[in-house]
């Protein structure tokens, strides 16, 4: 009986000592490998992901004049150069047809929109969303997206607007166009163009329309 009790006590003591030693070992050596695991990966494994570059046209938010700078680029003036206080152009024109003195060379072919559909009336340096929020010209894509939402969704997924640069964002940035890179806001239809010359291979066909 007493021998059994002693044996049990010894075993119990051994177990307690074992747990204690194990706990001690963990407290000494345990955290170290954890640190190593935490520290090592961010430096080596995480690849650099490049953000998209959107090519917004230069001079967004200015009006082109006939003057040109030293590089031959047209000089733009801010809208507020003339529309300082709101006195000029009041009441604001509803459509481009009403413009008789200024902006007369502007063609407008963009649905049934009025000037004030997009331009903020009390601050000509800003654009206006449908809910009245004023935005900068640089954010005009948001304005286009109000009506052209499905196109904008395609654009967000690279199915509209094209791209250049890298398809792999860990190799380099992807370069995207802005809406206004291809579409002039007042006359947004893509213009007709002359194509590059046809191949001169064995398909020597006579063009049918000549």
């Amino acid at each position: 009986m007493s021998q059994n009790l002693r044996r049990t006590l010894i075993v119990a003591a051994a177990v307690i000592a074992g747990v204690f030693v194990a706990a001690l070992m963990t407290s000494i050596f345990g955290p170290e490998p954890e640190f190593e695991i935490d520290e090592s990966p961010p430096e080596s494994a995480a690849p650099q992901i490049y953000d998209d570059i959107i090519h917004a046209p230069a001079g967004l938010g200015t009006l082109r004049t006939e003057l040109r700078d030293i590089h031959g680029d047209p000089i733009g003036v801010a809208c507020s150069t003339c529309h300082l206080s709101g006195n000029l152009g009041d009441p604001p024109a509803k459509s481009a047809d009403e413009l008789s003195e200024f902006h007369v060379d502007m063609d407008f072919d963009h649905g049934d929109l009025a000037c004030s559909s997009c331009h903020a009336e009390d601050n000509r340096n800003q654009l206006k969303l449908a809910d009245g929020t004023q935005i900068d010209y640089e954010d005009s894509m948001e304005l286009c997206a109000q009506c052209h939402s499905s196109t904008y969704r395609s654009y967000k997924h690279g199915a509209h607007g094209g791209m250049a640069g890298h398809w792999d964002d860990s190799a380099g940035p992807r370069e995207r166009n802005h809406c206004l890179s291809c579409h002039y806001a007042h006359e947004p239809a893509f213009p007709d163009v002359m194509p590059a010359p046809p191949p001169r291979d064995r398909y020597f066909e006579v063009p049918t329309d000549q």
């Binding site: 010359p197 046809p198 191949p199 006579v206 329309d209």
Partner: peptide, 11 residues
């Protein structure tokens, strides 16, 4: 179809 067109596009 024709591959040798040479006029303003799109027609």
């Amino acid at each position: 179809g024709t591959a040798s067109y040479d006029h303003t596009v799109p027609a």
